[in-house]
Design a protein around this nucleic acid. Structure first.
Lengths: 248, 248
DNA sequence: TCAGGCAATTTTGAATGCAATTTTGACGCG
DNA sequence: CGCGTCAAAATTGCATTCAAAATTGCCTGA
């Protein structure tokens, strides 16, 4: 093959950093046009995550194009991205299908979530500020209140918020993005850890959260990482038990 | 907007599992045609990872199309995927650029790698077989041999192999894929942890590997996770020091 | 009645075309 | 000589088109 005609292309020197001297119009036009592609991608992802397409079902290109009012090109681009995210699978010449998540894969995903939360906890111990901690502590107590009142909805909201805050406190963009990605994949399966029917697990979860807060207070990174991983493990196990309980 | 004309689409019942009754042609034509898209995606990824495009440089659509002998459509699809992988960034109406990885992001990526390795270690302790362990032990001793002989290349190869085996032993597909993704992103920056110039770090790394093997032997999950995370941290720190040393 | 085969239709994968935006470069002015 | 303006050229985003593959439906023959 011919020589690398464009082998080492040099940077054009344009820096991603703001260069105010270059911008005559002071208007910071960032994302003025959110680009159809991104919008379609987000919409299609939501469409699937929200369960509008059954697991294993074909993803009907034509229909979705009409639905979103676009041509096939941007839709197909979005499909490739969703496939790389693991939400759908592309069968050569046979279209896209919503990926079916079997029990084994669910366990795998939960474990990775656990690993990411463990990492978040470890990093959070290094970087969390007093304000961050105070906010998490506040959420923790609010959650405890919901627990006492048996307010499942409020409890879940606080629980979610706490875990999100920990990830946030880790101050790691790559971690945040990866965490969000896995959370999205898991959101599709409703692992209804319906604690209402499992008071024991609820109490256990609450105790684990006490440990989490305590480890974070002491900035005990490795310890917090361990607790968080096991916390997710228990959560998954409870969900699995509940699943089995329903199906029997 | 109108009613969800295609709201709950049902599965077509076709199972991903082999359905021999449905397949008249017994030929298992899986991936006979690797689909241009996948090929282009892999080639483009390699092209960028191997440093043919400088960080921050524009990704010239037209030129790459000619280079790969394809039209813009599959190339653009690949670009979207690479953008979702974080390898490039897409600026609306202004094309794709190779993402510039600054010091901060490098630290973030290393930490996530550390978190993933920690998870791999923890899971490996749960699932590793005696054969798996024996293989890792063998690699460890081989690595020690390279260390004694100051064979940097052989040392690196074994080192890499050990970490890969641990991830493999974790038996978690999602983890493996995520790990591979981050490894790819990091491969672009040559964090030449040139141990040859840093004998202390090399010795330290070797001692850490002794701990790793020991924890794995005892199936001490939480402990191994902790060691692996710190191992990556130290590796990063050594690379950063070396970087600073070079630039001064 | 039902299995098998063939042709029409549908669907996918990729190329091409076209409007809109950006970039480039020349020109005029201070 | 430097700076702003504006038009030409290039590039991007998306729609449309086209060929190849798969799916569907129909028909035939046992």
């Amino acid at each position: 093959m011919s020589a690398m005609t464009l082998a080492p292309i040099d940077s054009d020197g344009t820096d991603a950093a703001a260069s105010p001297t270059l911008g005559p119009p002071p208007k910071p036009r960032e994302r003025l046009v959110p680009s159809l592609h991104d919008e379609v991608l987000a919409r299609l992802r939501d469409f699937i995550v929200e369960g509008n397409l059954a697991a294993g079902a074909r993803v009907p290109e034509r229909l979705l194009c009409e639905r979103f009012g676009i041509s096939r090109t941007p839709l197909r681009e979005a499909l490739k991205v969703l496939a790389s995210e693991g939400l759908i699978e592309l069968l050569p010449n046979r279209g896209a299908r919503v990926r079916r998540i079997d029990e084994r894969e669910l366990v795998d995903l939960f474990d990775v979530m656990g690993g990411l939360e463990a990492l978040a906890g470890r990093l959070a111990c290094e970087r969390v500020t007093e304000e961050d901690f105070a906010e998490i502590e506040r959420l923790h107590h609010a959650m405890y209140g919901h627990y006492l009142r048996r307010d499942l909805h409020g409890y879940f909201a606080c629980n979610q918020a706490i875990h999100d805050r920990i990830v946030e406190a880790a101050g790691n963009a790559a971690l945040r993005a990866t965490y969000a990605g896995f959370a999205g994949r898991l959101r599709r399966v409703r692992y209804s850890a319906n604690l209402d029917a499992d008071r024991d697990r609820w109490g256990e979860a609450m105790r684990e959260h006490e440990e989490i807060l305590d480890a974070l207070r002491r900035r005990a990174g490795a310890e917090l990482a361990d607790i968080l991983f096991r916390h997710l493990r228990n959560k998954r196990r409870a969900a699995a038990d509940r699943e089995a309980q329903i199906s029997e």
